[in-house]
């Protein structure tokens, strides 16, 4: 298990940098720990939320998150900048998530969308009072709608929203072709929009 005895506070070591992720990772591979710290600061929040929004608890999310970063750390000697770092990072995360699903005897549904799923989406909040249609309420509702999405569509949305990945990168990370990734994302957005109703 990792020790936190001699850890340096993150705020003290992280400095903003204009270097690309790939350059930072290569510098880290060559022994510059500070480069990793910058990389970590850049991506820790998004990756953590990507994990958190797809599993049940904070503890599980932290475990997945830690495993992904440890893989990056342990495989740094073999890192080559063949793809974007974010694609590499989220591919590791996707694989770890699939392992988690398997361990939980869950499977990512192969079917992206059907009529039953459409009807399962919560009804729009059109009946709620005007005060409850505030942005904050809508955001909370969006989170609920997100949780109700099929896993593949939710993952596509999170890769887009949190990771900032392109369609090609989403396809690469999730191991599907571009059209499938596009379809998943389109369905996810459409369902969220339909769920929010009045917002559209």
């Amino acid at each position: 298990m990792l020790s936190s005895a001699s850890a340096t506070p993150l705020q003290a070591v992280s400095k903003p940098s204009n270097e690309t992720d790939e350059v930072l990772m290569l510098r880290y591979r060559n022994g510059e720990t500070a480069a990793f710290e910058q990389l970590y600061v850049r991506h820790k929040g998004a990756l953590y939320r990507y994990c958190l929004r797809q599993c049940s608890t904070t503890a599980v999310a932290e475990e997945l998150f830690q495993d992904v970063w440890l893989k990056v750390i342990n495989a740094r000697a073999n890192y080559t900048a063949q793809a974007r770092f974010t694609t590499y990072l989220y591919r590791l995360a996707h694989n770890r998530l699939v392992d988690y699903y398997r361990a939980q005897s869950r499977t990512i549904p192969a079917v992206d969308c059907n009529d039953a799923e459409w009807t399962a989406i919560p009804t729009p909040a059109c009946e709620q009072p005007e005060q409850q249609a505030e942005r904050r309420g809508q955001a909370e509702q969006l989170l609920q709608l997100l949780n109700a999405l099929p896993e593949t569509q939710r993952e596509a949305f999170l890769l887009r929203e949190e990771g900032g990945l392109s369609l090609d990168a989403i396809a690469e990370v999730t191991g599907v072709n571009r059209e499938t990734a596009k379809s998943r994302l389109r369905y996810a957005v459409a369902k969220l929009r339909q769920g929010l109703g009045a917002l559209a």
Binding site: T33, G45, E140
Partner: peptide, 20 residues
């Protein structure tokens, strides 16, 4: 607008320690 949670400081420190 949704609250954007981040990993705990303890987890940050553990990972940075491992990275060193």
């Amino acid at each position: 607008k949704i609250p954007q949670p981040v990993p705990s400081t303890d987890l940050d420190n553990r990972l940075l320690q491992a990275a060193r």
